[in-house]
Amino acid sequence: MTGTPGWLVAVAALTVGAILVRLYTVVTAPRTAKPSGRREAIERCSFAVFLGSGGHTSEALSLVSALDFNRYVPRTYIISEGDTLSMQKAVDLESAKAAEAPSTMPSSMRSDSRYTFVVIPRARRVHQTLLTTPFTAALSLIAAVWHITVGPLIAGPPVPEVLLLNGPGTCFVLCIATYLNRFLGLRSPKLIYIESFARVRHLSLSGKLLRPLVDRFIVQWPELVKDKRRDECHGWLV
């Protein structure tokens, strides 16, 4: 007999089966609004946001500016390679927030210098040909997996508890890396997607892509709520 031994087939089938079952449970896990365990007012929560450049960055930073910077610590700003403008805008916001923080607070509690930047390559540049897109997308995914999955395992900074996304495409790889963590049973950030204020009747491409994957899918115009169990609208947020 030259055929594969029966036991090997059985092991392979079991492995594939187990992976599929795991994948199924991870992807179909209930994503209803299930708040994290109760936190005291003084407890901290690590936070990350992807700044997708241009209007995406403006809206994302507008949302971030609403937060209590003494509560959401440390903060990680994830930017695309070469996007110095987004980096500058985040630094400006941090400075503005630090300036308004109550000066009575002990210096260890002050919110300044409690933020870092993570840079990942763009999944696809504007006007890039479709032919090379798989390669740049793969590089982008590797970087995302490095920061979200591998880094926290090998004593890098711990993975943030919540990740805020609002497009464009590159934020999809962050979503995939988060799912890898869930598949492996590692700690993973809660994914919150906020559709742009500019989207009134049609979702953006990133909105359509991320809608089935994120934990909270929030739009800013009520016409975009198609399925009340999944889509939420709380009015204008920016």
Partner: peptide, 27 residues
């Protein structure tokens, strides 16, 4: 046009992350 109202997103995230009160001292 209404001015920016950050409280909606702040309350939304605070609630999602398990904070019970919506106005922490720092906010």
């Amino acid at each position: 046009f209404p001015q920016f109202d950050g409280s909606r997103f702040r309350e939304l995230l605070d609630e999602e992350m398990g904070y019970q009160d919506h106005t922490s001292p720092g906010a």
